[in-house]
């Protein structure tokens, strides 16, 4: 049940056709895991929190460093040296006191990933492929949706994976560009907002998801394009 204060807080989005109070209740009951509290995670977490997603679980094992601050806007100078999850939880609870934020300091590996995910919707805000593929494995095994985003420089990509229906991450990825990723903060902000939009639509059951579609954002030419994905019949994860 939404309180008067919550109804007032969410008034403008409840006005959106197809949203209504019942949609807001769905958000309040929803459980979303955001894996990574970095560049993508900052945007995703911020907008899921202010939209009123009731239970948010953050997983990150890193501490805030100075070189994070060009893009990871949940953290600031005074947070350098703190756990990212603590910094993120503090900011999110200040943004919206009506939600529950659970912060878990952990590096995702094959031993802990199933327990960390539990039955939460999965948002992939990681910065490395092995962890992304572990999340994908859990998504496939537990039939949980996975909201994927990735960035490099001025370019970003996003897709939504619904196991059993769409291609999975393993259908796509056979490796990535090695080395340190160049990135400007606006790119994960844009892609993270797209991922958050997908999560909200999925929970509300509205709109058209980025399923079997890869959205490609090219910030240099300021163009969005889209390509179609398909399951790999030989995929070792989802075939």
């Amino acid at each position: 049940m939404l309180s008067k204060r919550e109804l007032a807080r969410y008034e403008r989005q409840i006005l959106i056709p197809g949203w209504s109070k019942s949609g807001q209740e769905k958000l309040k009951k929803a459980k979303v895991l955001v894996a990574g509290a970095g560049g993508l995670g900052s945007a995703i977490l911020t907008y899921l929190a202010v939209a009123g997603v009731g239970r948010i679980r953050i997983i990150d094992g890193d501490k805030v460093e100075l070189s994070n601050l060009n893009r990871q806007v949940l953290h600031s100078d005074k947070d350098i040296g703190r756990n990212k999850i603590d910094s993120a939880k503090e900011k999110l609870e200040a943004l919206n006191p009506h939600i529950s934020v659970e912060a878990i300091k952990a590096t995702i590996d094959e031993n802990n990933v199933f327990d960390l995910v539990a039955d939460y919707l999965i948002v992939d805000a990681m910065d490395n492929l092995p962890a992304r593929l572990l999340l994908n494995r859990v998504a496939v095994k537990k039939s949980l949706p996975l909201f994927h985003g990735a960035v490099y420089g001025f370019e970003g990509r996003a897709t939504t994976i619904v196991p059993g229906k769409t291609a999975c991450l393993r259908c796509l990825y056979q490796g990535v560009i090695p080395g340190k990723t160049p990135v400007v903060g606006v790119t994960p902000a844009i892609i993270g907002c797209i991922q958050a939009t997908e999560v909200l639509k999925y929970i509300l059951g509205t709109g058209e998801l980025l399923t079997d579609r890869l959205l490609i954002y090219d910030g240099l030419s300021m163009k969005f394009s889209e390509v179609r994905l398909k399951k790999d019949p030989n995929c070792c994860e989802c075939k």
Partner: peptide
Amino acid sequence: NGQKISADELTKPLNDGDELFFVLAISGG
């Protein structure tokens, strides 16, 4: 033409006017 192809389709015949597109896999977050 906007549809992902697999490694075994790289030698599949193309048609006049087709559009080919390729990207590098990225993983920054």
